[in-house]
Simulated assay, not measured.
Amino acid sequence: MSRFEKLSHVIWHCQYHLVRVPKYRVRVLNGAVGTEVFNCIQVCCSQLGCNVVELNVQLDHVHLLVKVPPKRSISKLVGTVKGKSVLRVFTRFPYLRQKPYCGNHFWAKGYCVDTVGVDAEMIRKYVKYQEKQERLQQEINFRH
Rank of each mutant, 00 (worst) to 15 (best):
M1P: 08
M1R: 12
R3V: 12
K6G: 08
K6N: 11
S8T: 09
H9E: 11
H9I: 15
V10L: 14
C14N: 11
H17R: 05
L18I: 07
R20C: 10
K23I: 08
Y24Q: 02
L29M: 14
N30E: 10
N30L: 09
N30R: 10
V33A: 02
G34N: 06
T35C: 03
T35Y: 04
E36D: 06
E36M: 04
E36T: 02
V37A: 03
F38L: 03
F38C: 03
C40W: 00
C40H: 01
I41K: 00
I41N: 00
Q42P: 03
V43K: 15
V43Y: 12
L48R: 01
L48V: 01
L48Y: 02
N51S: 10
N51I: 05
V52Y: 05
V53E: 02
L59N: 13
L59A: 14
D60Q: 06
V62D: 01
H63F: 05
L65S: 07
V66I: 04
V66N: 02
K67E: 09
K67T: 07
P69L: 09
K71G: 09
S73D: 04
I74H: 14
S75K: 08
S75I: 06
S75R: 08
V78F: 02
G79Q: 09
G79S: 06
G79N: 08
K82P: 08
K84E: 14
V86D: 00
V86R: 02
V86H: 01
T91C: 04
R92F: 08
F93I: 14
P94H: 05
Y95Q: 07
L96P: 01
K99G: 06
C102R: 00
G103I: 01
N104M: 10
W107G: 04
A108E: 09
A108H: 07
G110K: 02
G110P: 00
V113I: 11
V113C: 15
D114I: 08
T115W: 05
T115N: 06
T115G: 07
G117C: 04
D119C: 14
D119G: 09
D119M: 07
A120Y: 13
A120N: 14
E121T: 11
E121M: 11
I123V: 11
K128D: 08
E131P: 14
E131T: 15
K132C: 11
K132M: 13
E134G: 10
R135Y: 03
Q137V: 00
Q138H: 06
E139C: 06
N141G: 10
R143Q: 13
R143A: 13
